[in-house]
Amino acid sequence: MSDAIESRLAELGITLPVAAAPAANYLPTRISGNMLYISGQLPLEDGKIAAIGLLGAEIDVAQGQRAAELCAINVIAQAKAALGGDLSRIRQFVKLTSFVASAPSFTEQHLVTNGASNLIANVFGDAGKHARSAVGVAGLPFSAAVEVEAIIEIEA
Rank of each mutant, 00 (worst) to 15 (best):
I31V: 14
A57S: 12
D60G: 08
R30F: 14
S2G: 15
I152P: 07
E58H: 09
F142M: 13
I76F: 08
L9H: 09
S133P: 15
I151Y: 03
P17V: 10
G136I: 01
Q65F: 02
S98E: 02
K95F: 05
L83E: 01
I52R: 04
M1T: 15
S105D: 09
G13S: 05
I52Q: 05
N122F: 07
I38S: 05
D3G: 15
R132Y: 14
L87C: 08
E58R: 05
I38T: 11
P22F: 00
A103P: 09
L83D: 04
V100M: 03
V135F: 06
G136A: 01
G47M: 07
N74L: 00
A62G: 10
G64A: 00
I52E: 05
Y37V: 15
L83M: 05
I31D: 08
L111C: 03
A131E: 12
G125M: 00
A72C: 09
I52Y: 07
V146W: 00
I152S: 01
A67Q: 00
D60T: 11
V137C: 10
I31L: 04
S102A: 08
K80T: 13
G85W: 02
L12F: 07
L55G: 11
N25H: 14
T29L: 10
Y26E: 12
A121C: 13
I90G: 09
N118W: 01
I76R: 02
K95L: 09
C71H: 00
I90C: 07
V61S: 05
L119S: 03
F124Y: 12
D3F: 15
P43F: 03
E58P: 12
F93N: 02
F93M: 06
F99L: 15
L96A: 03
A138D: 10
G13T: 09
Q63C: 04
K48D: 13
A19P: 08
Y26W: 10
N118S: 07
V148L: 00
A101L: 00
P17E: 03
A131V: 14
I14S: 09
L119K: 01
D3V: 15
L16R: 08
Q109D: 04
L12W: 07
L12A: 11
N122K: 10
G56A: 01
G139I: 04
N74S: 02
A77C: 04
I52F: 05
A62W: 02
E69W: 03
P22N: 06
A81M: 05
I73P: 15
E149K: 06
A101G: 01
S105V: 13
Q41K: 14
Q63P: 14
G125H: 04
A121Q: 13
G13M: 01
T15I: 09
M1G: 15
S105M: 04
L16F: 07
A23E: 14
P22Q: 04
Y26N: 10
M1F: 15
I152L: 01
P104V: 05
A68Q: 03
H110R: 09
A103G: 06
A81D: 10
A156R: 09
I151N: 02
C71D: 02
S102L: 00
E155T: 15
L12Q: 06
L16V: 11
A138W: 02
P22V: 06
F142Y: 13
S143K: 09
K80L: 06
S143H: 12
G136V: 04
G47T: 15
A79S: 07
A62P: 14
E11A: 11
I14V: 14
L111Q: 05
Q78L: 10
A134K: 01
A4F: 10
Q63S: 10
K95N: 11
V146R: 00
V112A: 01
L16K: 06
A150P: 08
